[in-house]
Amino acid sequence: MVPERLKEHLGRTYGISEPVIQQIWDDLLAYHQQSPEEYIRHRHLELQDQGLKNDQIYHILRKEMRQRLFPGPELTVRQVRRIIYG
């Protein structure tokens, strides 16, 4: 449930409805509740769909993991590869 004050602020500031605010809130929570492994697997597929090669992707994922709101552990390229491929 979206905190009432935040809901009011977003509605006033951006003119969006309560259902839209709730949907945004749910999406944000789902994004930030992903485990590092879930995030890496999901993001790997997104980056592949953009045409990037694994060597590029591994370094992007390592950087993104350090920049997350709740960063995961510092991972090596090998650890990233193992998360993706087992």
Rank of each mutant, 00 (worst) to 15 (best):
E37H: 10
K63E: 14
Q50T: 09
A30T: 15
L47F: 04
R62I: 13
P36I: 06
L61F: 01
D55G: 04
Q67K: 13
D55E: 09
D55H: 12
D27Y: 10
Y31G: 01
H32M: 06
G51N: 06
L52S: 07
Y31S: 04
I60F: 00
Y39V: 00
Y58W: 15
P71I: 01
E38W: 06
F70M: 05
D27T: 00
M65I: 02
K63R: 13
R68G: 11
H42A: 07
Q50V: 07
Q50I: 12
R41M: 02
K63F: 04
A30K: 10
L29N: 07
P36A: 05
D55M: 10
Q34H: 06
L47G: 01
E37C: 05
P36F: 11
I57Y: 04
P36K: 00
G51C: 12
L61I: 08
E64Y: 00
L61T: 09
Q48P: 05
Q33F: 00
K53T: 04
E64M: 11
Y58G: 03
Q67H: 11
Q67Y: 08
R66Q: 13
E46K: 03
S35W: 11
I60E: 12
G51W: 09
R62Y: 04
E38F: 05
Q33P: 01
Y58S: 02
R62F: 01
Q56S: 13
H44Q: 09
Q33R: 10
E64S: 04
R68N: 06
R66Y: 08
E64N: 06
R41N: 10
L47S: 07
D26C: 04
L61R: 05
R41P: 08
Q33H: 12
L45M: 11
D49S: 15
Q50D: 09
D49R: 13
E46D: 14
H59K: 15
K63G: 07
Q67N: 12
R43D: 14
Q34R: 12
E37I: 09
S35E: 10
I60Q: 11
Y58M: 10
L47V: 13
Q56P: 01
Q48D: 03
L69P: 08
R43H: 08
H44C: 10
Q67L: 14
E46P: 01
Q33D: 07
E64K: 06
F70C: 01
Y58P: 05
L69C: 05
H59C: 04
Y31K: 14
M65V: 00
P36M: 02
R68P: 02
R68M: 01
L29M: 12
Y31P: 10
Q67I: 00
H59W: 08
L52H: 12
S35G: 06
F70Q: 05
Q33W: 02
Y58L: 15
D55A: 14
E37V: 13
E64F: 03
A30P: 00
A30Q: 09
Q67M: 07
P36E: 05
H44M: 08
G51S: 09
I40G: 02
R41Q: 04
D26H: 02
H44G: 00
R41D: 01
R66F: 07
L29V: 13
K53C: 01
N54Y: 12
D27I: 03
D26A: 14
R68K: 13
K63V: 02
Y39E: 00
Q67D: 10
N54K: 15
R43Q: 11
Y31A: 07
I40P: 00
R41E: 08
H42Q: 14
E38H: 05
Q34D: 09
I57N: 12
H42E: 13
